[in-house]
Simulated assay, not measured.
Amino acid sequence: MDMHYLTVILLGIVEGLTEFLPVSSTGHLILASELLGYDASVWAMFNVMIQLGAILAVVVLYWRTFWAVAMGLLRLDPVSIRFVRNLLVAFIPAVVIGLALHDYIDTLLGSPRVVAVALVVGGVAILVIERLIREQRFHGIADIPLVRVIGIGFIQCLAMVPGVSRSGATIMGALTLGVERRTAAEFSFFLAIPTMLGASTLELLKKGDQLTSAQVGWDSIALGFIVSFIVALLVIKWFVGLVSRHGFAPFAWYRIIAGIGALVWLSLR
């Protein structure tokens, strides 16, 4: 197989594997560019587009939930209204801070060392939070009080630093604010839809002319999208079952080992 398409498939697998795990998909894509030696700027818009495949996986897996919420909104059901309100309110901080710091965030995206350090720090933070959390009062997305939803939205913004992980920040923020594990994970999945759509739209508006470069055409984007979608489908179902039984410590140790390994490799290059 052509090396180009091997890179497409690999990036699709990395995106699908890491987007919803607390390990940072953006960080892994940055490190992959360093490890494989390809020009990350050429593939930047490709990486944005294949995120939409991961989003579609959430919609497909949870279509019954979305359908029930949509029907509930038509009936003005309070639970459905609170569900949508909580997602929208948690999304607002990312909009405001993302627009304000967009250029600075772009600068950070070029630094694999930032990714490596963030992986280690984030892994340690997960281990600490896992030890400290005790009370889990909220067992449904609609049950989370508005003040705590706002807190989760601001904590999600930490993931604008590459390597922090959007899903990791959201889940850990929710846990510290009293949300039960499975609900915290699912809230992270659902919040990814407006957050990632918003980030992708912003990138398209700013850099849409780069959408199909000579090296990365529509056929590559379509293949990466499909690979990301299929892998994310498998990962989401596995992830929810795993954290319900074992918590998030396995991902914390992975982050720490991967981050230290990346720092050593970067220092020896």
Rank of each mutant, 00 (worst) to 15 (best):
S220A: 15
G224M: 03
F187N: 04
S200R: 10
A232M: 02
F189I: 01
I193H: 07
L223V: 13
D209E: 15
Q215P: 03
G198M: 10
V231T: 08
K206D: 14
H246M: 09
V231A: 05
G198T: 10
L233H: 07
W253T: 12
F239Q: 02
E186S: 09
V240Q: 00
I236F: 07
D219P: 01
I193C: 08
L191F: 00
S220R: 03
D209K: 13
S220M: 11
I236A: 02
T195Y: 08
A252Q: 04
V231E: 02
F229H: 05
A214Y: 11
G217E: 13
V235A: 06
Y254N: 11
A192I: 04
G247C: 04
S188T: 09
V227Q: 05
A199I: 07
I230G: 06
L202R: 11
A185V: 12
G217P: 11
R245E: 01
K237A: 04
A214G: 14
Q210T: 14
T195K: 03
F239M: 12
L223H: 04
Q215S: 14
K206T: 12
W253S: 05
E203T: 10
F229A: 00
S213I: 09
A232V: 04
S200T: 13
G247Y: 08
A192R: 01
V216G: 11
F187M: 12
V227E: 08
F248M: 14
K207E: 14
W218D: 04
V231M: 03
G208W: 12
S188H: 09
I221K: 06
G217D: 15
L234Y: 06
R245I: 00
G247S: 06
L191G: 07
G224K: 04
G198S: 11
F229L: 14
G247D: 09
A222M: 13
F225Q: 04
A222I: 13
S213L: 11
T212Y: 14
